[in-house]
Amino acid sequence: DVEPGKFYKGVVTRIEKYGAFINLNEQVRGLLRPRDMISLRLENLNVGDEIIVQAIDVRPEKREIDFKYIP
């Protein structure tokens, strides 16, 4: 289970104008929005990159997770 405030290693699987989709595993995916990136820009991410993200909002009923990147 993903818990708000905890850090997780994930893989960038898709990049859109509104953010990057990060997979923690095959069943768990969330969104990293540009506003939640500190010292990292969306255009510097590539599909396949491994990054450490912090879960900031977890909505299991909608199967949605918002992430934050903190270097």
Results as ranks from 00 to 15, higher is better:
9 K>D: 04
57 D>V: 13
31 L>S: 02
14 R>T: 08
60 P>A: 13
71 P>C: 09
49 D>P: 01
65 I>P: 02
25 N>Q: 06
38 I>Y: 12
35 R>N: 10
47 V>Y: 06
21 F>T: 08
43 E>L: 08
28 V>Q: 10
60 P>Y: 09
17 K>L: 12
7 F>P: 05
49 D>K: 04
46 N>W: 15
54 Q>I: 13
11 V>R: 13
22 I>D: 00
41 R>S: 14
47 V>E: 07
43 E>Q: 11
59 R>P: 03
23 N>R: 11
39 S>P: 15
1 D>M: 15
30 G>H: 02
9 K>L: 12
51 I>P: 00
50 E>D: 12
71 P>S: 10
56 I>M: 13
4 P>Y: 10
48 G>M: 06
57 D>E: 14
36 D>E: 06
23 N>G: 09
68 K>H: 07
39 S>D: 15
29 R>M: 12
18 Y>E: 08
54 Q>G: 04
8 Y>H: 02
62 K>A: 11
33 R>A: 05
61 E>G: 13
44 N>V: 09
32 L>P: 01
35 R>Q: 12
4 P>A: 14
40 L>I: 13
37 M>K: 02
67 F>D: 02
42 L>Y: 06
51 I>S: 00
32 L>M: 07
46 N>R: 15
51 I>N: 00
70 I>R: 07
34 P>F: 08
29 R>Y: 13
30 G>Q: 01
14 R>F: 07
42 L>W: 05
54 Q>T: 08
56 I>L: 14
25 N>S: 14
14 R>L: 09
62 K>N: 10
2 V>D: 03
6 K>R: 11
47 V>F: 05
45 L>E: 00
2 V>E: 02
38 I>W: 07
5 G>R: 07
33 R>I: 05
3 E>L: 14
7 F>I: 08
27 Q>H: 15
11 V>K: 11
42 L>N: 03
70 I>V: 14
12 V>K: 00
64 E>D: 06
18 Y>G: 04
57 D>R: 15
27 Q>W: 15
57 D>C: 10
18 Y>C: 05
24 L>C: 03
71 P>V: 07
57 D>P: 03
70 I>G: 07
54 Q>A: 07
47 V>W: 05
60 P>R: 11
18 Y>R: 05
67 F>E: 02
48 G>E: 03
58 V>C: 04
40 L>R: 06
7 F>G: 03
67 F>I: 03
47 V>G: 01
21 F>P: 00
43 E>A: 12
61 E>M: 10
67 F>C: 03
40 L>T: 08
28 V>H: 09
59 R>N: 09
16 E>K: 10
15 I>L: 11
59 R>F: 06
28 V>R: 05
24 L>H: 01
26 E>V: 12
1 D>T: 14
24 L>F: 04
18 Y>K: 05
35 R>M: 10
13 T>P: 00
26 E>G: 13
14 R>V: 08
53 V>L: 04
56 I>D: 04
42 L>A: 04
38 I>Q: 12
3 E>Q: 15
39 S>Q: 14
35 R>C: 08
27 Q>S: 14
35 R>L: 07
25 N>P: 04
27 Q>K: 15
9 K>V: 12
4 P>G: 07
49 D>T: 06
62 K>T: 11
31 L>N: 02
31 L>V: 07
30 G>D: 02
10 G>P: 00
46 N>Y: 14
64 E>H: 11
